[in-house]
Design a protein around this nucleic acid. Structure first.
Lengths: 147, 147
DNA sequence: CTTTCTGCAAACGATTTGCAGCAGC
DNA sequence: GCTGCTGCAAATCGTTTGCAGAAAG
């Protein structure tokens, strides 16, 4: 099946002088199916034949090809998600208790306020903003019921 | 000198059954003097007599006493700053090239938009938001001139 | 005085890397 | 067929931990 996503990924890998392999396509599919950034252990559970080191190396290759983005949570694990222009712009709900990270759609009102603030800060600080992260940190529904 | 900050720190340490030591007071002073979250190497440069392991242990104690907060950037180093209720609410400019993190004041318009979005998300997702992070990722002025 | 903190050195664990064989193109 | 990917195992490096002596209360 040749979805738009697959086509874009192949183009970007070629553009970065990287090969298109089964492992790389599988990684993209796994991340595409998830509604949240995934840790390496989670990814390996979806594809147990993939070696840990190959997973890291491929995620790096995909990151350099602008297909994957690495995001940090509140725990010691790195998390990986598809680049924003391959999905929808969204933000993250991060649980302080269990470290879980969930995607949330970005409310339009919030986005326009962020864009306005970004414009101000770019001129006042001489900083070129490429993208923004809005994370809401707190207690997820699951952890709230446990205690 | 008994500043408000010092008093608050002493109270919070006592409240968490932690002792007030010279190392801990020095850490608070270092973080208080910086206008950005600091990495461990940066902290040790300010207080070379402090052992690395003691720095980590004390930062953990201060974190549990709600005096210090750990924040992540785009590189492999953890960064530490004073808890927000001991400073002013602010956001971060994070450089993709060099990893530098700077504080920026939070524009009032942005804050009210975030608060509104937070209220919506709390009801729709059953998530209790304790605080938010707004990070602007891009290229800092220094890196922009280098290349 | 008792308990907790301190520095040192060793342990830990997520991520990275060297290497010989296999697969993309 | 050449080049770059793969799995395995070993190395790396920020961070954590065990221990005996010093300092807070």
């Amino acid at each position: 099946m040749l979805t738009d996503l697959r086509v874009a990924v192949i183009q970007r890998l070629h553009g970065a002088n990287q090969r298109v392999t089964r492992n790389r396509e599988a990684l993209v599919e796994i991340l595409s199916d998830a509604s949240r950034p995934m840790t390496l252990p989670e990814i390996l559970k979806e594809r147990p034949t993939l070696a840990q080191s190959s997973a890291y190396r491929n995620l790096l290759a995909l990151e350099q090809a602008n297909v994957v983005r690495r995001v940090g949570g509140v725990d010691e694990f790195a998390r990986f998600e598809l680049a924003e222009d391959l999905t929808e712009h969204h933000h993250h709900l991060i649980c302080d208790r269990c470290g879980a990270v969930e995607d949330v759609d970005a409310p339009p009102g919030l986005e326009s306020a962020v864009d306005k603030a970004v414009a101000e800060i770019e001129v006042s600080h001489g900083f070129l903003v490429r993208h923004h992260r809005v994370d809401l940190v707190g207690i997820c529904a699951k952890c709230a019921t446990i205690k």
